[in-house]
Design a protein around this nucleic acid. Sequence first.
RNA 1: GGAGAGUUGGCAGAGUGGUCGAAUGCGGCGGUCUUGAAAACCGUUGUACCGUGAGGUACCGGGGGUUCGAAUCCCUCACUCUCCGCCA
Length: 422
Amino acid sequence: MLQLSDIRNNTEELKKRLAKRSEDFADKLDSVIALDDARKEAQHRLNELQSDMNSKSKSIGDLYKEGKTKEAESIKNETTKLKESIKEIDSSLSKTEEEIRDLLVTIPNAPHESVPKGNTDQDNEIIKKSGEPREINNAVPHWDLADKYKLFDLDLGSKLTGAGFPVYLEKGAKLQRALINWFLDSAIEAGYTEVIPPLLVNGETAFATGQLPDKEGQMYEMKEDPFYLIPTAEVPITNLYRDRILVEEDFPVKMVGYTPCFRREAGSYGKDVRGLNRVHQFDKVEIVQIQHPDKSYATLDEMVSYVEGLVSKLGLTYRIARLCSGDLGFTSALTYDMEVYSVAQEKWLEVSSISNFEAFQSNRLKLRYKNRDKKNILAHTLNGSAIALPRIVAALLENNQTDQGIIIPEVLQPYTGFKTIS
RNA sequence: GGAGAGUUGGCAGAGUGGUCGAAUGCGGCGGUCUUGAAAACCGUUGUACCGUGAGGUACCGGGGGUUCGAAUCCCUCACUCUCCGCCA
């Protein structure tokens, strides 16, 4: 969430940046400031009363020790009222703090100045295209190729679980492992440290990276325990650094992790859900960085090029989009999407989303660093898919189909152990 | 799942109702000494909020309670450890 101090000090700038979002948040910012004024006043009064109480308590103790029981009793009587006032102000202060928080959690991150104003993905700005898509006559969509070569089976998955839980088979299963391993090895080579986090997280963790309360209902929730299945490795990996105070020398923190991801995708049925286009469980390798605020945008560019390198080595046709304000996630200040072209479906599939959250997550994570003046400053967090598997698989199958079978990209061959699927 | 013991500052570890934001040791930072370093010695060393400032307030796993006063007593939850049970 946005920093209170920022809202107070840079009110107009934040209003301007937030105005790009579909909803107007100017009033909310003003309300936050007004509530914060009330909070300060209450805080001040409370402190005074507490101070009074502390000194009274101290003298009661002293008086008893000196045997002056009567005097002690008389001061004790005075504290009764004081105690009530403290309780009263304390609870009203808590209420105000809660109101501030309730308001703050509904305000999204302020879009970066380069974010184009817009409503839907139609308004995203294509900043790079890798060339013209290859043309294949009578291209077969990946779900039919999967049947033909026994690569994955959605019906089987729906028997075991429900719609959107693919079962990967034979070379399809091997291809998953190959991609995961190649993605991981590439990231490690690029300086990322591998982690394997839990797949279930508690509410505090989900709150800190912004999934709660914004995406409540999009995560699978456990029945017996207050845990959520992770929708992305971003959640547990970024939270590794919750409540940490770093030193500048720690930057950049670079982590990579492979996890399955679970998404309910409530409300998105019907469209674009065939085959692997949108499933409830999928595999993803995620890269996360924690960076100095001055360097986070350079890091974002670096991460985009890194992901671009991956799709490029896979030989896929891709384009990079700068998300417009309407398509920008709640927690992000600037997001680039990597999209690959799917020949049979004749459309672009989003395979990676790379975002700079600035201090939005750090504020909830309480992730800071000590600067040279020994002040604690919120760090910036970033992450990106590197990469999500299903749509990469979809594009690979469709784009690489030939009469002789499906050609496996060279970089993957050491991992698959086969060169074609036939 | 059952029984028991714990959770204190960066770490280790005292503290069982008032003088405790918290002894002591280690580590970190600054200094003295030294050609340099080590050792020794001296000083300093948590986070957040309120206040222009002096200063004040809160925090000893989380939440609640008892009390004039709680790190210390009670309740509750989470976590850690030991033993038993079950199990990959």
